[in-house]
Design a protein around this nucleic acid. Structure first.
Lengths: 137, 137
DNA sequence: TTTTTATGTAATAAAAGCTAACATGTATTG
DNA sequence: CAATACATGTTAGCTTTTATTACATAAAAA
């Protein structure tokens, strides 16, 4: 029984999540439509959210508040996944081309990687994990 | 924002509590009838349970499993309260009569006090806090 | 044996949540 | 400006979940 399990256990009904995140039900469902979260469902088709889901929603909310639109948020989230995959699949840094000056493209990749690695070591992003921190000792 | 708040925030609907505690709705409501727990209510009168409530229910469940009946459980819980009051009201040990041998009554009081003090220092009762431990890091 | 406990079961009403459709305000773009 | 797209609000109809209450029952206690 590890953190992963604890954090992803579906426990909260949408009403609680609304309170906790200050998002409307409409918003929460909308973000699900866009696959930013994937809450579990009860037998009766009710959404049940995990700590992870709530963390995601808090992150989304912050981005929204900063004026980022869906596409942007998808980038941020997709970025995470993409980079995670990279790191998981071959456990070494992205190859850098031999050209003297990096292309913007390559630069971005490097930055992404840095962010991801910091995240994996829990050294960055105060927003990330807020919900969880709220509940842990 | 402290532990007390975190642990007593009403977050879980009864269905989740049933799963988490393996108690039936009937049982949970019954224990509420007997004031062993006092879950919050939504505007719509639905029970919403906190980590504390779930901790209590786990403790109740353990006692039940050990064959303790309602009256016994009330003793255990009431004991807690009563002794807490004692400790809170006058912050010193119960006076001991001058009689050479303590009455059974007095002996019990002393034992209670000991237990309570240990509890207050989190040095006793493995069952207590299980739920919370499940969720904290 | 009769009572009391603790829990199960069933009926009914109300609350909460789901989907789907349409409405709307605000940017963005031709 | 007009048209479009985006993000969210609103409403309606339906289903699931929960609450209350009453009655049933097995086991324990008296």
């Amino acid at each position: 029984m590890n953190d992963q399990v604890r954090r992803s256990s579906p426990l909260f009904p949408i009403s609680i999540v609304m309170n906790l995140t200050q998002l409307t039900a409409r918003q929460i469902r909308y973000y699900e439509e866009h696959s930013l979260i994937t809450p579990a469902r009860t037998d009766g088709n009710r959404r049940m959210f995990s700590f992870n889901d709530i963390d995601c929603l808090l992150e989304i909310k912050e981005l929204i508040d900063q004026g980022v639109n869906m596409a942007g948020i998808k980038q941020v989230f997709g970025l995470k996944n993409q980079s995670d995959e990279i790191i998981l699949k071959d456990n070494k840094p992205i190859e850098i081309s031999n050209k003297k000056d990096l292309s913007e493209e390559e630069l971005r990749k490097l930055l992404k990687q840095e962010v991801i690695q910091k995240r994996q070591h829990n050294q960055v992003n105060l927003r990330q994990g807020d919900m969880w921190r709220f509940f842990k000792n």
